[in-house]
Computed example of a mutant assay.
Amino acid sequence: MKKLILFLAFMALVVVACNNDSNETIPNQEIAEVDMSDFYLYTDKEDNGTAGKSTQSGEKCHSMHVLNRQLKENPGLYQKMYNVEKHTRQFIAAKKPTGTPGGGGGTDPGTDPGTDPTYTEAITIPVIVNILEDPAHPVTQAHIDSQIEILNEDYNNANPNTSGAPAEFSSLVADVNITFTLASVNRKASTKTTWGTNDAMKYASQGGIDATSPSTYLNLWVCEIGGGILGYAQFPGGTNATDGVVIGSDFLGENTAGGVYGDGRTATHEVGHWLNLRHIWGDGRCRQDDFVTDTPSSDGANYGCPTYPTINCKSADMTMNYMDYVYDDCMYMFTAGQNDRMRALFIPGGAKESFVN
Rank of each mutant, 00 (worst) to 15 (best):
G248V: 05
V245Q: 10
P306H: 04
Y42F: 11
A301T: 02
A189M: 08
N302D: 12
D290R: 06
G99S: 09
L13W: 02
V326Y: 00
R287S: 15
Q288E: 11
I311A: 01
T88S: 14
H62E: 11
Y78N: 10
A189F: 06
V16H: 08
E85F: 06
N177G: 05
E121H: 12
N68A: 05
T118C: 12
G104R: 03
D116S: 12
H143P: 02
G237L: 07
T181Q: 13
Y155M: 02
Y332Q: 08
N321R: 01
Y332S: 09
N19H: 11
N20H: 10
N240W: 12
G58A: 08
E353Q: 15
A301D: 01
A233F: 07
D108Y: 04
G106V: 06
I26M: 03
L71G: 04
Y82H: 10
P214T: 03
Y78F: 14
K352N: 13
D263S: 15
I131E: 00
Y217R: 10
S315H: 05
G49W: 02
G114Q: 00
M81Y: 00
N186F: 06
K95C: 12
D289H: 08
A167I: 06
L277M: 08
Q141G: 07
G105C: 07
A51I: 09
K45Y: 06
V129H: 03
L77N: 08
V129L: 09
K53F: 10
N321Q: 00
Y203E: 15
S184I: 01
Y232K: 06
S22V: 11
R341L: 10
S163P: 02
K95M: 15
W221E: 09
T120K: 15
T319M: 01
V176K: 09
G110T: 09
N159D: 15
G58I: 03
G248C: 11
R69P: 01
A344W: 05
K192L: 10
Y42M: 10
L4M: 13
M81A: 00
A257E: 10
P113I: 05
T25Q: 13
M318I: 03
N83Y: 03
G99E: 09
M11P: 06
Y82M: 05
Y82C: 01
V176R: 09
T162V: 15
T118N: 14
Y119F: 15
H143N: 15
P296V: 00
S205G: 15
P27D: 08
G114L: 06
E46V: 13
G264Y: 07
M333A: 12
A94I: 10
A93P: 00
I5Q: 15
G258S: 05
N159S: 11
D108H: 03
D134N: 15
N339Q: 14
W274I: 04
S205P: 03
S190T: 12
G103I: 08
I123R: 13
S215N: 12
V127W: 01
T124G: 11
V271M: 10
S163T: 11
M81N: 05
V34N: 01
F291E: 15
V139A: 03
Q288N: 09
A167Q: 12
K96L: 14
Y78R: 13
I150R: 14
